[in-house]
């Protein structure tokens, strides 16, 4: 493998990792702060991509699809938190698993009613549609580079909110010790619904951003859900930095695994997860959960 091919694969791996980070950070925040396991996270990734397809088909504007899709997902998240999830904060994980499984079935079927089960594609904005020539045979799409940039900006924004703002402080305190935060009179329960809706919006955002480079299809959420779980297990529940490390590890392992070990590439990330579990059962940056 020559240097340019290597660099292209590296870029692909990082870009995949960055998208994974967006989706998994939403998941890890919901886990860590609300203590809720949301199996429907992948369904919102899928839904985001379908929203992008739907809005851009009628308006032809990808920017509008981006904003509109995220806003719709956020609104759905707020509604779900108020109607269902709120009632499950004190309940066991089994109830949360069942609720989110039920929601997956409902979301999948509603998607089928609204959008059918065809595979779709979404056009990137025209000014990002070209590609950069690297050699005579290799070129790199501009949209993929832009995607990396967008993800980096978003990642920086997430870290800024969590580490530097008042809201982030409340979120971190809640993730550290829920009861103590409440006892100190910090309005932690007020942020719950925004954390849940924000997590879902991040999943949808991931789906919207990848829609121009991958196809939009019904089963896309399931695969993403599992990989996000692996990312969270690697990084540790509730740790956004852990999610970043885990996402990059998975992105690179998967991309280079497909190049070097195509036969077993699909199980490599699970081998990685098994290794981390043996070494650090609570994830690389996770706290002990007991």
């Amino acid at each position: 493998m020559d240097a340019i091919t290597f660099a292209v694969q590296l870029l692909n791996g990082v870009q995949y990792g960055l998208v994974l980070f967006l989706v998994a950070s939403g998941l890890t925040l919901v886990f860590g702060i609300l203590g809720v396991i949301n199996l429907a996270h992948g369904a919102f990734y899928m839904l985001g991509a379908y929203f992008a397809y739907w809005i851009s088909r009628y308006t032809g504007n990808f920017g509008l699809a981006l904003v509109g899709g995220v806003a719709m997902a956020f609104a759905i998240g707020l509604a779900l938190e108020q109607i269902f999830v709120k009632r499950l904060y004190g309940r066991d994980h089994l109830a949360q698993v069942l609720l989110s499984f039920g929601l997956i079935l409902v979301i999948d079927e509603v998607r089928q009613i609204l959008f059918g089960k065809d595979v779709h594609s979404v056009a990137a904005p025209t000014w990002l549609q070209g590609s950069i020539r690297l050699t005579d045979v290799l070129s790199y799409p501009v949209y993929r580079l832009a995607l990396c940039a967008i993800c980096l900006v978003l990642a920086a924004a997430i870290f800024y909110v969590i580490q530097r703002t008042k809201l982030g402080m409340v979120i971190r305190a809640g993730a550290e010790n829920r009861d103590m935060t409440r006892a100190l009179g910090i309005p932690f329960d007020v942020v719950n619904k925004y954390v849940f809706a924000g997590g879902i919006a991040l999943a949808a955002l991931g789906g919207i951003l990848v829609s121009p480079i991958s196809t939009v299809f019904p089963g896309m959420g399931d695969g993403m859900l599992i990989i996000s779980f692996v990312v969270v297990v690697l990084g540790g529940i509730g740790s956004v930095a852990g999610a970043a490390i885990g996402a990059l590890m998975i992105g690179l392992t998967d991309t280079f695994g497909k190049v070097f070990f195509p036969q077993i590439s699909s199980i490599l990330i699970y081998v990685l997860m098994a290794g981390v579990l043996l070494w650090r059962p609570n994830g690389l940056l996770g706290r002990k959960e007991s």
Binding site: F31, G35, I37, H93, V97, F229, V232, V233, I237, L277, P281, N282, G283, E289, S290
Partner: peptide, 8 residues
């Protein structure tokens, strides 16, 4: 692992 981790 325990709890949510075990499920995942």
């Amino acid at each position: 692992t325990r709890g949510i981790y075990f499920i995942m």
